[in-house]
Computed example of a mutant assay.
Amino acid sequence: MQRTLPGPCPLCASTSGTRTDDAWYCGLCGWRYGDAPDPELPLPRVDVVYYIRFDRRVKIGTSRRPRQRLSSIRHHEVLAFEQGGHALEQQRHREFAALREGGEWFTYTGEVRTHVAELRRAGDPWSLYARWFSTALRG
């Protein structure tokens, strides 16, 4: 059962969690509440392929720092993330080549909408990223 954490999760800032016999765990990213990443170790790299919408177009790009990257790109909506780097991004560009409008921008119709809908079934993009990051940090 989800309950309120004693304070926000230090990784994703969620306030919901679950309590086990020995500890609290974030309900969003799974991080054990009270643990802190070792500041002397480098943060893990979690590459994502992102799908952002601007009007009737969607940009399919990749980043290892999606918040920073997406803050520099004009868009209306973050549609989805999938875990992967340049190879997956290039694969998606080939899959949707017929819909390419230029660069990494594609017409947001048909195949792309269906693909984004499938990705959205896995969850909210930022929640997924928080979970992937937490898993990589624990790993």
Rank of each mutant, 00 (worst) to 15 (best):
1 M>A: 13
3 R>G: 08
7 G>P: 08
9 C>T: 00
11 L>E: 07
14 S>E: 12
15 T>P: 02
16 S>G: 05
17 G>F: 01
23 A>I: 08
23 A>R: 11
24 W>A: 14
27 G>A: 05
29 C>F: 03
30 G>P: 01
31 W>K: 00
34 G>E: 04
34 G>W: 05
35 D>Y: 06
36 A>P: 02
39 P>Q: 02
40 E>Y: 09
41 L>E: 04
43 L>Y: 01
46 V>C: 04
51 Y>N: 05
57 R>I: 00
61 G>N: 03
63 S>G: 05
64 R>A: 13
65 R>H: 05
67 R>L: 14
70 L>D: 12
73 I>V: 15
73 I>C: 13
74 R>P: 03
74 R>K: 10
74 R>S: 13
75 H>W: 08
75 H>T: 07
76 H>L: 06
78 V>L: 08
84 G>A: 03
85 G>W: 01
89 E>Y: 03
93 H>Y: 09
96 F>R: 15
97 A>K: 14
101 E>I: 13
102 G>Q: 08
103 G>S: 13
105 W>G: 01
105 W>D: 01
105 W>E: 02
107 T>G: 02
110 G>N: 08
110 G>S: 11
111 E>N: 09
113 R>I: 06
114 T>V: 11
116 V>Y: 01
119 L>I: 06
119 L>K: 03
120 R>E: 15
120 R>V: 13
122 A>N: 05
123 G>N: 09
123 G>M: 07
124 D>M: 06
124 D>N: 14
124 D>E: 09
126 W>Y: 03
127 S>C: 11
128 L>W: 11
134 S>F: 03
138 R>L: 06
138 R>C: 07
